[in-house]
Design a protein around this nucleic acid. Structure first.
Lengths: 180, 180
DNA sequence: ATATAGTTAGAGTGATCAGTCAGTCAAGAC
DNA sequence: GTCTTGACTGACTGATCACTCTAACTATAT
């Protein structure tokens, strides 16, 4: 992404949140301070812009995680990843919200979703090992992974801090059978 | 809702899922086998139609739950409600999906969301009591309630059955500190 | 058979949309 | 100084949108 594209993406994110999924390209171009034509010079179609927003937020999210190589799963690593995701989502709340909006509204294309899934794979491998070794329990790695993200999203949504956040983390540990 | 309205709502649900959030009223009217004008005779605005779909699915969902009066919380009641929600979602998968789509895409109006929240209140009261009495644990009733629904949604999304579904239920019990 | 009331069909309306394109402009190359 | 390049602009376009309007239709009462 070049500067122009970043500028447009940055302006588009709050618009999607405040104006809804059907915000027009004209409004986005206006908010970014560029002309209609420039928007379509940066992104050939509206779908390309939407996918760029999704890719940009997801990539930033994964960048916040500690490197998955060589680490062994346990309460400490889970906590590290918990803090990483929670920290990113609270530092960039609009990015976090729009990431969910674009996925759950079906606006993000299947292609970009598949592309992003590949980024998640190395982090998932840690869970695969932990589940095989009996460190954690659950019906599948995908289920456990979704469970963890859901729990943290709930902490954000309910704005939990301090002991309440600790409790939510403890509940997650108990859920997946992880002894602290 | 009269028969006409039900007919249009029924036709609209699969369209929202297959064509996306921006499906046109013309397509919906066509799928319902009525004219454009008849759709707007049944629902004055597209928003009214969307809200009717949301209200209809949510109401059907709550109707599936056992009556909340007089029941005391415990693993058996949790399981009853688990089965009720899971059963409804699996019997009416499109209703379940569109309910989430309309909420998370921001298409359902704030008004209808507030209206539906009132339906949830009596069921929530059971959790309020259980949390006060220490039967379950969690940072708040809203958090626990969301947690339960999220867990069941995951069971549906990952298509869990038999022992895997049991495991997911057991994980939920451990999470909220409910002894079986 | 006729009157009345309510409903429906579908062409029509103005607004708005994503996307286009001819022309402008500023900055380097020589 | 002039030429070339490439990004930018914004008016424009055809398509599509939510919604309207009226003539035709249906059902019931008398």
């Amino acid at each position: 992404m070049n500067d122009r594209q970043k500028q447009i993406v940055k302006a588009a994110i709050p618009l999607f949140l405040t104006e809804g999924v059907s915000v027009s390209t004209a409004r986005i171009a206006n908010a970014a301070g560029v002309s209609n034509g420039t928007l379509f010079n940066a992104f050939p179609t509206k779908q390309d812009l939407i996918d760029a927003i999704y890719r940009s937020t997801k990539t930033a999210m994964f960048a916040a995680f500690p490197a998955p190589q060589g680490a062994s799963f346990g309460p400490k690593l889970l906590r590290k990843n918990w803090d990483a995701y929670l920290g990113w989502a609270r530092a960039a709340p609009e990015d976090h919200k729009v990431m969910h909006l674009l996925r759950e509204s079906g606006l993000a294309s299947a292609g970009v979703k598949a592309e992003i899934n590949a980024l998640a794979a190395p982090h998932g491998q840690i869970l695969v090992d932990a589940l095989e070794q009996g460190t954690i329990r659950g019906p599948s790695v995908g289920f456990i992974s979704d469970l963890i993200f859901n729990q943290i999203d709930l902490v954000i949504e309910h704005n939990l801090h301090g002991t309440n956040e600790e409790l939510a983390f403890d509940m997650l540990c108990h859920s997946i059978g992880l002894v602290k």
